[in-house]
Simulated assay, not measured.
Amino acid sequence: MTDTPQISEAGFAAIDPDQLFPTTRSRHAPRILILYGSLRDRSFSRFAAEEAGRILTRLGADVRIFDPRDLPQPDTVPLDHPKVAELRDLVQWSEGMVWSSPERHGAMTGIMKSQIDWIPLSLGSVRPTQGKTLAVMQVCGGSQSFNTVNQLRILGRWMRLLTIPNQSSVAKAWDEFDEDGRMKPSPYYDRIVDVMEELVKFTLLTRDIKDHLVDRYSERVESHDALSQRVNQAKAVAK
């Protein structure tokens, strides 16, 4: 039986409780960005997003909703395109996000995916989504489905977002909103309130320690090894 690899002391340390429970906490309203996945005039994913925004505002959050109209397809324009820059700036500003998409052909829409694809995994040394919170929602034209929220969860994990446990899926969305786009009282509405409450709570709990929560041993070892290599190269040149 072979020995298991040894843990590298360079990247290994005991968990420091003081980093998990900071004595100084942010006092500003939690900053939440909402994305929705349809351009239709009567867009139920936008209606759900706007309803979520109203609830979040009542819960004390600072809310911004991104309008995806005029956002080009990924990789077709420079990064300084006004809509691309607006989206990226909002992601950096935010401490949490809500993604609200219709389900089309059993999946999220291209509009929803394009917005997520424009969000970079890193900007220089900054990862704009890492450790921030995420709530996922979908609206369905027919019976209730969870395909889209499940896909959004996969993307959230890939973007290193802290996706909250609760989620919303609104069946027969065409029957759940009035002519003004306001959601009718229903268990579906109550679930969105539940999800937004949970999002605010998780955001308040984690925003001051998000970098510590997602700090990875493997990356610390890699950084240490890379630094050691550069130091050794510099010493070799100096000789």
Rank of each mutant, 00 (worst) to 15 (best):
S143G: 10
D75W: 12
K83W: 06
Q151T: 13
D117Q: 07
L155F: 11
L162K: 01
D225C: 00
S100M: 12
L39G: 00
E176I: 01
R46K: 15
V193N: 08
D175N: 13
E50V: 15
G181P: 03
D180P: 02
W93P: 05
Y189C: 04
Q73L: 13
Q151R: 13
P102Q: 10
P102R: 07
I7H: 00
S122P: 02
E50C: 10
L134T: 04
L155C: 11
A238L: 15
K132T: 06
E179W: 03
P165C: 10
R42F: 04
E95M: 06
R88K: 09
V126T: 15
R207C: 06
L199V: 09
I55N: 11
D117K: 06
P22L: 08
R58P: 07
V195P: 07
Q229V: 00
L39T: 03
V126A: 11
V231G: 00
R220C: 02
D178F: 03
L39Q: 02
Q92K: 15
M137A: 09
F177T: 02
R153V: 03
Y189A: 09
I119D: 01
D190T: 06
F66H: 01
S43F: 12
H224W: 09
I192P: 02
S125V: 10
Q151V: 11
A226H: 03
E51M: 11
W118M: 04
S26H: 02
M108H: 07
I34V: 09
P165R: 07
R64M: 08
V63W: 09
R58S: 15
S125I: 07
F66W: 02
E219C: 00
L59G: 14
P74S: 07
Q6S: 14
V126F: 14
E197N: 15
I7L: 10
G110H: 12
A171V: 05
E222G: 02
I164T: 12
V84P: 07
F66L: 02
R216C: 03
S169D: 03
S38I: 05
R54S: 14
S169G: 05
R220Y: 02
Q151H: 10
Q229H: 10
M1Y: 07
G11V: 01
R54F: 12
Y217C: 00
G96E: 05
R25I: 13
F21E: 11
I154E: 03
V221N: 00
K83M: 10
E198M: 13
G124L: 10
P187G: 05
T23P: 01
Y36N: 09
D117C: 08
S101A: 14
P30K: 00
P78C: 05
K235F: 03
R69A: 14
A29F: 07
G141T: 09
V91Q: 02
D18H: 06
Q92G: 12
G181V: 03
V84N: 04
S145M: 13
M112T: 13
R46V: 08
